[in-house]
């Protein structure tokens, strides 16, 4: 068999599923988006970057509150869907651009806000992506990183990465809050706040969104069935495989060079 690059796997995974991500309630709503909106407030002159925009939910949420939003993603189909949805919603200040988080095509210090949601767990290199976020952010800017987080326990971490990889071959790593803090700080930020939210995932739509093959679905269900009691409890695994995860909203500001 011929193996594909990580970028093309990410593109394939998300390209044909753009509509599912646009419509997914897990992605379209959330306490993290509400918190983001509160943190950003109203900044009519600000330029914001939605880094790894996916279905564009950060861009749509921020567009009415800021002057301009740039939505950046690796998947051209996602970007086309975001551009069309922005037009449909009458949001004339959303621009789209295809790029890699680790190699952003923006000049230094051009953004007042950089926000990234449910994207970093697909990046090849978290620290490189965070350094780029830091580079394009103004010294007085605000960064908000939102993602699914792994449990701090090693066993829970391994379990979670395994089912994530079975579900989605473009998965790289869900980081723990501790790993996030360390990576954000070493990229030149100071962490201002971290808020965690539990999010319930419906097993059928969670796997359908990624078109997880049937043999992988069975493997996930088997692992869930054999999981240690503390794992089953942490993830609140239900009879049909639905479970609950932690997500994080981390607010950071640049530290002086």
């Amino acid at each position: 068999m011929e193996n594909k690059t990580h970028e093309s796997i990410v593109g394939d995974q998300f390209g044909s599923q753009a509509g599912a991500y646009l419509a997914s309630p897990v992605h379209a709503r959330g306490e993290d988006l509400d918190r983001l909106a509160r943190l950003v407030g109203t900044r009519p002159a600000a330029r914001a970057l939605d880094l790894g925009c996916g279905g564009g939910h950060v861009a749509f949420r921020l567009a009415p509150a800021v002057g301009q939003v740039v939505a950046c993603d690796l998947s051209p189909d996602m970007l086309a869907a975001v551009a069309a949805e922005a037009v449909r919603r009458g949001l004339g200040n959303v621009a789209t651009e295809q790029g890699l988080a680790e190699r952003l095509p923006f000049a230094d210090a051009r953004f007042d806000v950089v926000a990234s949601r449910h994207s970093a767990h697909h990046w090849h290199d978290l620290e490189a992506g965070l350094r780029e976020a830091r580079r394009v952010l103004r010294p007085d800017g605000l960064a908000v990183f939102m993602d699914v987080v792994a449990p701090e326990s090693v066993l829970g971490d391994t379990f979670f990465q395994t089912i994530e990889m079975l579900r989605d071959p473009s998965h790289v790593r869900d980081y723990s809050v501790r790993e996030w803090r360390r990576a954000v700080e070493s990229a030149g930020f100071a962490v201002r706040s971290v808020a965690c939210h539990r999010v319930w995932l419906d097993f059928a739509s969670w796997t359908a969104r990624m078109r997880t093959p049937e043999d992988h679905v069975r493997a996930i269900r088997s692992l869930q069935g054999r999981a240690a009691a503390e794992i089953a409890e942490y993830f609140a695994i239900e009879a049909d495989g639905s479970f609950t995860i932690d997500t994080m909203t981390l607010e950071a500001v640049p530290t002086p060079h």
């Binding site: 690796l74 051209p76 086309a80 551009a83 651009e97 295809q98 890699l100």
Partner: peptide, 8 residues
């Protein structure tokens, strides 16, 4: 392409 710059 379609107004979207492909910066890869």
């Amino acid at each position: 392409r379609d107004g979207i710059p492909i910066m890869l």
